[in-house]
């Protein structure tokens, strides 16, 4: 069994009413697959989290479909929104998905420098996406288009806003992995590589949501 030992001892109750004894807690299966699930725990954890995310975005997609099909008229996305900027953002997110898997592949090859370069490009892509999104939002606000304007803009701002928050969340984790989190490479390369893999899975999901948001909101 492969385990990771916490570096700081954690106080635990010794079972005799004398709390405060110091023992080290071992976290199992952070590196190699558990025999019963066939994967390390982090991977199963991220997939369960992504399943809950599908339900979160699914509720919003369901709402959009109901609102749109119930409305006597609904503006076309291409009439109201900026297609060239959204297309550019699509390419940026797809590109960032590739750089994450390239980072992971290079870490598996033992090349931390290249791995960090690709993670940095991913982070920059996320930043680029957010800058473009903020330009889009600013233009909408200048034209007095707010979530309260109508159902079209309400769904547009809620769905792209929630997606943007997910991009921001991913950027924070990538920032950690490039910066202080990279110290783990010196002590446990495999665990660092696994962390990049599960963060990558999350990032691909964020890309996947955008792949559906783009045509539904902007192009139809």
């Amino acid at each position: 069994m492969t385990t990771t030992t916490l570096t700081h001892p954690v106080p635990v109750d010794d079972g005799h009413g004398h709390g405060g004894g110091h023992h080290e807690i071992e976290i199992p299966y952070t590196l190699h697959p558990r025999p019963d699930t066939g994967m390390y725990n982090g991977k199963l954890g991220i997939w369960l989290f992504l399943a809950s995310e599908v339900m979160l975005f699914g509720a919003l997609f369901s709402t959009l479909i109901l609102l749109r099909t119930s409305a006597p008229s609904w503006p076309h996305g291409w009439q109201e929104l900026n297609i060239p900027l959204a297309t550019l953002n699509t390419f940026i997110l797809i590109g960032s998905s590739v750089t994450v898997v390239l980072a992971w592949a290079n870490l598996r090859l033992g090349d931390l420098r290249k791995g960090k370069i690709f993670l940095s490009i991913t982070l920059l892509c996320g930043l680029g996406f957010m800058v473009i999104k903020s330009i889009e939002y600013a233009t909408k606000f200048r034209h007095h288009h707010f979530p309260s304007t109508n159902n079209f803009f309400a769904t547009y701002f809620v769905m792209t806003g929630l997606h943007g928050l997910h991009v921001l969340g991913g950027m924070i984790v990538f920032g950690y992995l490039i910066g202080p989190g990279a110290k783990l490479w010196e002590t446990n390369r495999d665990q660092y590589t696994n962390r990049v893999e599960v963060t990558g899975l999350y990032w691909h999901f964020v890309d996947l949501v955008w792949i559906f948001l783009f045509p539904i909101l902007y192009l139809l």
Partner: peptide, 27 residues
């Protein structure tokens, strides 16, 4: 047409970037 293309794109991301093409049954 738009949803068909989106499903194909999504499948490519899920299958290759998320490695669902060779994943455990539990997933």
């Amino acid at each position: 047409l738009a949803l068909t293309v989106a499903v194909v794109k999504g499948s490519l991301v899920a299958a290759f970037f998320m490695h669902l093409i060779s994943e455990r049954k539990l997933i």
